[in-house]
Design a binder for these strands. Structure first.
Lengths: 107, 107
DNA sequence: CATACGTGCAACCATCGAGTTGCAGGTACG
DNA sequence: CGTACCTGCAACTCGATGGTTGCACGTATG
């Protein structure tokens, strides 16, 4: 399951600034914190903190390149979170459809 | 697209207490706020607030039953969020796999 | 009718998260 | 070598959020 809890991924994806950050990375490939901060209405420091959160969630990975640090996207944890959510949704759906109560838990 | 933003769903699912709440509802079907609060280490009021968040996200729906209010699961928004995340993950995967830069996202 | 139970509202507190500013330390380059 | 640029750390502000207590109101029920 790659890295970072599903909960961490969800929390990371819940923030609009963070999503914008990830969008930028998806669109333009690797980028440094300073580069990312231009184009966003926040300070470089704020971006740094967000990147730290994203890294803890495993959604992004840093790579030192001379005097700067480039961050790149890591899709795996996102896919994990997505399938986890999907599984839960399916389970709920099965339960609410009829059995509604106990039932033989899917998992 | 049911109800509640995907972001709201993600934020709602990011909280452990809220997940526990949803688990209880999934396991035992409908339940009132007071019923849910027993079995959790928090006050009824805290549960009420969490239920409000979950309702705003569309994950739960209230139904007045005499003098009490029963909350029931609503799987749809969760499924939406899951497929949204899945789509994003696929897109990232496609981009990081080769094009990495701009590239015509589509296919 | 009186009582008990459940809900709803409001005030309040503590903590967390997002964001800022300021400054010190490396690293590239003329 | 000196300058410019980027990173890293620390202190601080401020609003949102999770949680609590207290109380008033409605609704069953003996």
């Amino acid at each position: 399951m790659s890295d970072g809890t599903v909960a961490e991924v969800l929390a990371a994806m819940a923030d609009p600034t963070r999503r914008a950050l990830l969008d930028s990375l998806a669109a333009g490939g690797e980028a440094s914190a300073t580069a990312l901060s231009t184009g966003l209405p926040v300070t470089r420091q704020a971006v740094v903190k967000h990147l730290a959160v994203l890294e803890r969630a495993g959604l992004v990975t840093p790579r030192r390149e001379g005097r700067e640090v480039r961050y790149a996207l890591r899709p795996a944890p996102l896919a994990d979170a997505a399938s986890w959510l999907g599984g839960l949704a399916a389970e709920w759906d099965a339960r609410t459809r009829d059995g509604d109560g106990v039932g033989s838990a899917g998992r």
